[in-house]
Design a protein around this nucleic acid. Structure first.
Lengths: 138, 138
DNA sequence: TAATCAAATGCAACTTTGTTGCAAAATAAA
DNA sequence: TTTATTTTGCAACAAAGTTGCATTTGATTA
């Protein structure tokens, strides 16, 4: 098991349970974003659907995962960088969604360029989602 | 009734029906993005849920509406500019979602900046969604 | 290590959201 | 006005998400 798993949970004052370990592990080994349905599939019948919902929610609140907006009614989740803490996300990198294989990547090294909005709009978060064909599929 | 309504429908070879007129009218008068649920509310019990789903789908296909990705499992729709035609959307403007009132705006005059992605990623679409506090709510 | 407390899980029931097929109704064309 | 085509509404269903509560598990303390 990945050494970061227990560490991450403890650092966030979460009790170490089977479902949390397993779900974190999935994210660590896949390195891609996962939707609720993906997790349900890849964890077999090991956990109840409800547990997965609640675990994802907890991880987002703690700053372990962030959500990636999409136009297909299937919100995806991905690991946050260490900069994220409880209630404070800093995931202003670009996300890429492949139209062919459906994989969603966090492009950690591509930062979202500054954008000049009309006066009066206060921006708290910027999400840039690109879609197209990924390296593997082209 | 807004004069553009019937015109828009005919230009896209769609028959002019009550639901299509009403839904288009909603978008024209509100000037903000609407989710399926919003439309259901604001049209009373006038139309069946299924009709609304199908109408939205048709409008997106025809290039009358475009979708706005979101992280809350509620895809929103907004009017396209005239440049959009059947199967070809050109809505590369920024969207702004207010955390307070929930309103989503198309910032038509703010274009999405070009982004340099790692080699191998072919981008077909770029969506930039900003969120924070809008003019009315600050 | 065992007992206790708090937190997380699983289950059941439910609500909401989205889809599909088909008959009836409305629109467009002749 | 009649006919052909499209769209709609209904029903039934499937999928996605939520809530309350009893049970189990993990953490804490003696």
């Amino acid at each position: 098991m990945h050494p970061r798993i227990i560490d991450t949970l403890k650092r966030n004052q979460l009790s170490v349970t089977d479902s949390r370990k397993k779900i974190l592990e999935l994210f660590l080994e896949r390195k891609a974003a996962l939707a609720h349905a993906d997790i349900e599939q890849h964890s077999g019948d090991e956990f109840d659907r409800v547990t997965i919902y609640r675990t994802l929610q907890t991880f987002v609140e703690k700053g372990i995962l962030h959500t990636i907006p999409s136009a297909d009614n299937a919100v995806r989740y991905a690991l946050c960088k260490d900069a994220c803490t409880e209630g404070h996300h800093h995931d202003n990198h670009v996300h890429f969604m492949c139209d062919v294989c459906g994989t969603t990547y966090c492009l950690d090294h591509v930062t979202v360029p500054a954008v000049q909005l009309p006066k009066g709009y206060q921006v708290h978060q910027l999400d840039l989602v690109a879609s197209g064909t990924c390296i593997k599929c082209k």
